[in-house]
């Protein structure tokens, strides 16, 4: 649709601008302020320059949390995207099965994030949880409280449980938009199941898949509540992701300077990723 050039449209955007500025720009300025100062309590602040940033970029703790977070995000994507596509391909296209599938599959997406954590915390417990109890009963030594590997497994399975449906729903939305004529043509050409997928379904899903991958990457990059409830970042630091580390530092220890520096670096990374997301998406829109 061609849009008219009209700068008066700014008045329509003004309420949003004021509201979001109040809840985004002012807090961000506070963070910038803290990140360059040091305090000894009593509201006395001293100029610290780039000290906190240098400290942060040389701290093993930050890079370890970052590394864990990246590994987590990549594992999540490697499982959820293929699984989501597979399930979307096998979903019914009409009849009573469609609303039932859509509603039941969307249910985990609407569970409050800490309840997701609670559900899996209980489900995985070796004494009262079905999963932990069953695994131990069949001879697998499983305990997410003590063993870092089990803790990782639990957090990953939990995230797959929580968010795979997002990929499924997006892919499904892409699949139902393919006209029948495409399949008829493929039928006439004698295309195999694989080539139908590769040359018809996958290209048609490209756009929604892009959104799914980027959303999942971003959301897993700032995951906090679910692993915090299940493992609390432990055992040791094995599931301490960036957000958990940041909250520990900012609200637990009240290390304002380092926490603010970390917030800014974290936010800049997310900003960069958002920019990539936005550019790729708008380019894609322009091509169509």
């Amino acid at each position: 649709m061609d849009k008219t050039w009209n700068n008066k449209a700014w008045f329509l955007v003004l309420p949003v601008l004021v509201l979001v500025a109040f809840s985004a720009v002012i807090p961000l300025m506070t963070v910038v302020n803290y990140s360059v100062q040091d305090t000894f309590g009593n509201n006395q602040f001293f100029w610290a320059g780039t000290e906190w940033f240098e400290e942060l970029l040389h701290s093993d703790r930050f890079w370890a949390a970052m590394g864990r977070n990246l590994i987590f995000s990549f594992i999540i994507l490697a499982i959820e995207v293929p699984l989501g596509i597979f399930i979307a391909l096998n979903m019914p296209r009409k009849g009573w099965g469609v609303p039932v599938c859509l509603v039941l599959m969307a249910l985990p997406l609407l569970v409050p994030w800490n309840v997701v954590g609670t559900i899996w915390q209980v489900f995985g417990r070796t004494d009262i949880g079905l999963l932990g109890y069953t695994l131990n009963a069949i001879g697998i030594d499983y305990n997410y409280v003590r063993d870092p590997f089990d803790a990782w497994m639990t957090v990953i399975v939990m995230d797959v449980w929580h968010w795979t449906s997002l990929v499924v729903l997006l892919c499904y939305a892409g699949l139902v938009s393919i006209p029948d004529a495409f399949y008829q043509a493929a039928k006439i050409d004698g295309a195999s199941r694989w080539s139908v997928f590769r040359y018809i379904q996958l290209p048609k899903m490209q756009r929604v898949l892009l959104i799914a991958v980027l959303l999942r990457f971003m959301d897993s990059f700032m995951i906090y509540t679910e692993p915090f409830v299940v493992t609390g970042g432990g055992p040791g630091n094995s599931t301490t992701f960036l957000s958990i580390d940041l909250v520990k530092m900012a609200l637990g220890q009240f290390d304002l300077g380092p926490a603010a520096a970390m917030s800014l670096v974290y936010f800049l990374i997310v900003l960069l990723l958002s920019w990539v997301f936005y550019t790729v998406m708008t380019n894609y829109d322009a091509e169509r």
């Binding site: 955007v13 506070t30 700032m222 957000s243 609200l251 926490a259 974290y266 958002s274």
Partner: peptide, 23 residues
């Protein structure tokens, strides 16, 4: 402006927890 709005949707809540508390 549209992009700036998007960045707020993508901002980690953990970054804003402390400044929100003070604000």
């Amino acid at each position: 402006l549209f992009f700036w709005l998007l960045t707020n949707r993508m901002a980690p809540p953990a970054v804003f927890a402390l400044p929100f508390f003070q604000l």
